[in-house]
Design a protein around this nucleic acid. Structure first.
Lengths: 195, 195
DNA sequence: AGACTTTTTTTACAACGTGTCGGATAATCA
DNA sequence: TGATTATCCGACACGTTGTAAAAAAAGTCT
């Protein structure tokens, strides 16, 4: 039951939550996560501190909810591009993902780029583990002596970490170029069955 | 000027710091990092809270100092194995590293395994970036269209993340086996010149 | 428009964590 | 042993946390 669906949400809560989220991202750009307090978030959002607690239990809870929203957005971005661009290559999913990250660079830079916030890393890793597990085949690994779960660990970590370094360095390559790089690197890995 | 060198250190400070470090690792096993306070660390270490501030500015400072010590230990473990086991393979460095991690599983499980503490991730990533940058050759990448820095991002993230997943899952494979897996995965990547 | 509901604000409170004193106590060194 | 150094103790001011009750503001509905 997403709040963007038919269940009409009071515009005040939408405004408040957006202000709080923007404030948190701003503060993450400016200081270390452990220096961020509810006081500062509320002050930056021009929202009363008590109001914060009407929406989130604490900062940890706020980040978890933001991470869940991120997961939804990412999966939407990945599937959308598959339908739009039916090029059929194995880099289609990645292209949609990278374009989404590029479009929200400010956000992703602070939550996975500079130092990063663990909870977001976790959720992203879960996404990649799932995706790679679907794409990997036992046939492509057996005979080469590569264990499946090790290959999944390897691939998902490489994907997440490369994207993290990409945004950390202010995205020196276009999403298209990086998607191509991924395709080249993964193709030599037998993580995907095609090719 | 390391404190393990000739500058004799008062055994009381050694004892205090060890108690504090052990306490922090214990607490990281039991609760989220943001729930850990100087109060709790001191209490667990059976050390007065004021004494904590005689050694570290705050918890962040304590973690940074521990991360520095970890870097020293890891680089020692990596170079030591090179001298001991002169098998000449490209997986020698990794084997020393993995054996070190396995020997200190309790520590590495909490700082990179379960959720993880960003500062330690950073330092480890720096180590792997440096190592891979030394091992990678432009020749092995050019012509294949793979950008050097992307390959370094990819390789270091894959290495760190795979090890993190390995300890997170309580190390289901031996260091020797995992080192071999790394060799297989990296060999198909042209990150190293040999093969 | 009005009345009704929901959200936000205001003020206040107790509990806890932080970082730092000065001075007492205990351990180490020479 | 005496001198030095580390640790402990009690205490302080300050900021943060989470919650409460009641007033004010904004949104909803007919």
């Amino acid at each position: 039951m997403k709040e963007t669906e038919k269940t009409k949400v009071d515009p005040r809560v939408l405004r408040t939550r957006q202000l709080l989220k923007n404030a948190l991202v701003e503060l993450l750009e400016e200081m270390e996560p452990d220096k961020i307090t509810v006081n500062r978030i509320a002050e930056r959002a021009t929202i009363n501190r008590v109001t914060f607690y009407l929406h989130y239990r604490d900062i940890q809870d706020m980040m978890e909810k933001m991470a869940e929203e991120m997961v939804v957005e990412i999966e939407k971005a990945m599937t959308k591009t598959i339908e739009e661009k039916k090029t059929g290559g194995d880099d289609v999913i990645l292209l949609g993902l990278l374009e989404h990250v590029a479009a929200n660079a400010k956000f992703y830079k602070v939550i996975i780029g500079s130092r990063g916030v663990p909870i977001f890393h976790e959720r992203l890793r879960d996404i990649f583990v799932k995706k790679i597990n679907d794409g990997v085949t036992k046939q492509s690994l057996e005979g080469k002596g590569i264990q499946q779960d090790v290959a999944v660990w390897f691939g998902s970590a490489a994907m997440l970490g490369t994207i993290a370094s990409w945004v950390r360095n202010d995205m020196p390559y276009s999403p298209q170029f990086l998607a191509r790089q991924f395709a080249l690197l993964f193709r030599r890995e037998d993580l995907y069955e095609n090719d």
